[in-house]
Design a protein around this nucleic acid. Sequence first.
DNA 1: GATGAATGAGTATTCATTCAT
DNA 2: TATGAATGAATACTCATTCAT
Lengths: 215, 215, 215, 215
Amino acid sequence: MGIKERKERERGRRRQQIMIAAKRVFSEKSFNKATMEDIANEAELSPGTIYLYFKNKDELFASLSLRILHYMSIRLEHVLKEKVLDPSEKIQALQEALYEVYEFDPLVLINMFHLQSSETLRNLSPDLLEDIKELSRVSFASMAKIFEQGIKNGEFIDRHPVALADIVWALFSGIVLWEESKRLIDNKKDYLKSTLEMAFEIFGQGIKACPEPVS
Amino acid sequence: MGIKERKERERGRRRQQIMIAAKRVFSEKSFNKATMEDIANEAELSPGTIYLYFKNKDELFASLSLRILHYMSIRLEHVLKEKVLDPSEKIQALQEALYEVYEFDPLVLINMFHLQSSETLRNLSPDLLEDIKELSRVSFASMAKIFEQGIKNGEFIDRHPVALADIVWALFSGIVLWEESKRLIDNKKDYLKSTLEMAFEIFGQGIKACPEPVS
Amino acid sequence: MGIKERKERERGRRRQQIMIAAKRVFSEKSFNKATMEDIANEAELSPGTIYLYFKNKDELFASLSLRILHYMSIRLEHVLKEKVLDPSEKIQALQEALYEVYEFDPLVLINMFHLQSSETLRNLSPDLLEDIKELSRVSFASMAKIFEQGIKNGEFIDRHPVALADIVWALFSGIVLWEESKRLIDNKKDYLKSTLEMAFEIFGQGIKACPEPVS
Amino acid sequence: MGIKERKERERGRRRQQIMIAAKRVFSEKSFNKATMEDIANEAELSPGTIYLYFKNKDELFASLSLRILHYMSIRLEHVLKEKVLDPSEKIQALQEALYEVYEFDPLVLINMFHLQSSETLRNLSPDLLEDIKELSRVSFASMAKIFEQGIKNGEFIDRHPVALADIVWALFSGIVLWEESKRLIDNKKDYLKSTLEMAFEIFGQGIKACPEPVS
DNA sequence: GATGAATGAGTATTCATTCAT
DNA sequence: TATGAATGAATACTCATTCAT
């Protein structure tokens, strides 16, 4: 029905509105310090209303992770599908895509590890949990395929592409978290981008198959 | 006096007892879910007693981080001082050292990122905070020197050693956190060690100065 | 709007409800022995609700003092403005007014000295503190003016009216506290009113300018 | 036995030592903020030791009140017995005696009202409570007798001497508390002595029998 | 007697969640 | 749907008191 559809769309809009507010609040405070009332204020809604759209605080939070995973999967698929790039260039594109993911939501990424706590996971509805897993899988598959192409091409050393994807993701997350940590302790400038570039250059060198070293 | 010494040692033992209990509890639950009562029960002490040895929950937690940092700094210095190893081998030794750090306290490492929250840092006594910073510095200096030697040797590409140390640490932390995340979501076997090995092999290849690619 | 007004009035009612309960509880137990839970039970509300209307225990307590100061300032101004009374009669009216203040809130007056503890004052919001100071000032000004009039009239000995007001207040407070003390220790009947009357008669005699003792 | 006596005297000394420390601590902090550990530290003893000499915190506190009451009863009896003073001068001497009591222990007097809380009284041993009551009675009897003499002399108006004693004590306590209150709120200089003098002059005038006003 | 480490009961305050309107 | 007032469970921390040495 047209009416049903319109209602559905309206519902989606409200969810967005809340999630945007939540993102802002979770970015400023950590998950535990952020209160539902903070989020309600930021969204210019009442606390009760949030519960009409999200089962509880954990699901609201998890929905944010879903959102960034969605963005990531799109960006990575895009890199994968770029025909004109050779595998080496794709690694660079991969790095850039990840940096964009970071820019899309710099601070919530840090909180994403919170999501993993078994307590939190227990609280999620199975559907939401499945969505999160699925989007993770899709993103990793895209990454893995990039490496697969490089290996087929003979341009990359023959290693398990899934493992390479893991390493890339770990490297990326680790750098983001580490830079954030240093910022808190030393109040230093944010070198994230340049660190990321160097890390990926090293990574790229490390997985490139050596050109026949001599003759 | 002998008496004073014995008391001091006794005090140290109690602190250890509490920290061991705290480590267990913080590993099972997250920092926020773990209550002081949980820890007291685990240590078979009363809640009040914990406060005789640690100013508050944050300092108890931070003391655990200090403990692992201490262990790490010793292991890394040891790697640095190994005369018989050439830089390439030292990278491998570095990887093993980090894995041992992980084994020393697998789950608290995850919580270490909690330590960085500005709220937590504010709560620490200046001395403890300084100790933590100092041990971090020492560990990083050791790592950086390993790369410095390699660069001087001409065996590594000339990159900023401090940045390399950052990348190694981020890589390590990222892998640990990432493996832990996967374990929670998928309940899968722990591939950490092999992932770590591959990551370090790649890293090693990536920073090794290419042998003259011939002409 | 009507709605806003009604809400505001509703809010005021709740505050009253809580303050009445708090008054009862603080009267039975001392500030420190009275718990927020006691007060919540007495008000037939949950503990959390109290915090919707009062920032903390100290402000709830201080609000009670504000209430009595408000009542006092009105009563005293009334005495001051009575045109038909001559200064001597005003002293008697003053005594009666103070006794009414006592009846308005017999036991919390005792606790009012608690309010002065520096710890408590630190905890109050500046506005509330300022209100308390202001109402005190107003009440004292009224008292002082009564004496001023008597001195101008030549009916009272020329002493500093502010000092006289201090003495009256000290006398009143002292008698209330002292009667209360005796009640607790000896379980005796409450002679407050007659003690107060005698004290004021003495005071009145003491400040009255002697009629030319004749010759 | 000489030994028993010496032990007894030794015991008394320890009690004094503890009470002096307690007085200092209770003067700085209020009863509730002062901890037994604070007092133990001040007395350079361990917390446990205090309990060898005082049943509990309340009794330690009450013992301080007993001490000041003892001092007061001596001072007042001394005033009463002064043969050379006429009743009018005795009122002045009374005022001076009370001021000395204040100087003996300025801040604990404020806390003395704490003693009256039913909770505290319940905690005292009957003997101690009886001692406190007895010393109060003695002091008040002394005061009352001063007024009795004045009435017999025809110099004071015939009012109930016990009631006059009540008023004097209330006046004194009220002024002390009131000055203390003002000091806390306004940080003003301490006018206690001059307020006390004026109050007693007024009081003296008020109870003096008027010289035959005319003829 | 003296110690001081250990105890554990006691409490203000917060905040996710609910539900009557 | 939306509200937001009310809820009440949950928790770090304190401190009077005890008791083994």
